[in-house]
């Protein structure tokens, strides 16, 4: 039993040391987007995706895009050095609220409960709020 406890403590120390080394070697990289990169990402994830309107958040960490084929609205959001994408349909979005240039979204997704997308200006936020209402 004692040996097992030592084994677990050593394992935890090993995990901490490896994570520390990783931080030292790679830093804490944060992914950034531009609208072309966001459209390219959607093209990879959704076969046949045709980019329509798009808008980038002020911090370049998320983008909203429209699929010109059917008017569906998609979110591409940075997580770590990668991205996650979500379709913003009525079924997936529980609530939307706007405060100035920021759109606050609540999702019915246990791993992605909420997102705030702060656009450059209020018109963009209002525009995407409207598009989501139609999608």
């Amino acid at each position: 039993m004692t040996a097992q406890i030592y084994y677990l403590i050593a394992s935890l120390a090993g995990v901490a040391a490896l994570v520390g080394l990783c931080a030292l070697l790679f830093g804490r990289e944060v992914a950034k987007l531009d609208t072309r990169a966001a459209a390219a990402r959607m093209g990879c994830e959704v076969p046949g995706f045709r980019p329509g309107h798009s808008a980038l958040s002020a911090d370049c960490r998320s983008a909203m895009l429209e699929d010109a084929r059917d008017g569906s609205v998609w979110l591409v959001a940075a997580r770590g050095d990668g991205f996650v994408t979500r379709r913003l349909s009525r079924r997936d979005v529980k609530a939307v609220s706007r405060k100035g240039a920021a759109l606050a979204l609540r999702f019915s997704d246990f791993t992605f409960p909420a997102a705030v997308i702060a656009f450059h200006d209020e018109d963009a936020a209002r525009d995407w709020e409207m598009r989501m209402g139609k999608a």
């Binding site: 995990v15 990783c22 931080a23 770590g80 050095d81």
Partner: peptide
């Protein structure tokens, strides 16, 4: 290849 700190920490945990 790629490594990312939080991703790696999650994998190891």
């Amino acid at each position: 290849g790629r490594y990312e700190v939080r991703d790696m920490a999650t994998s190891l945990v």
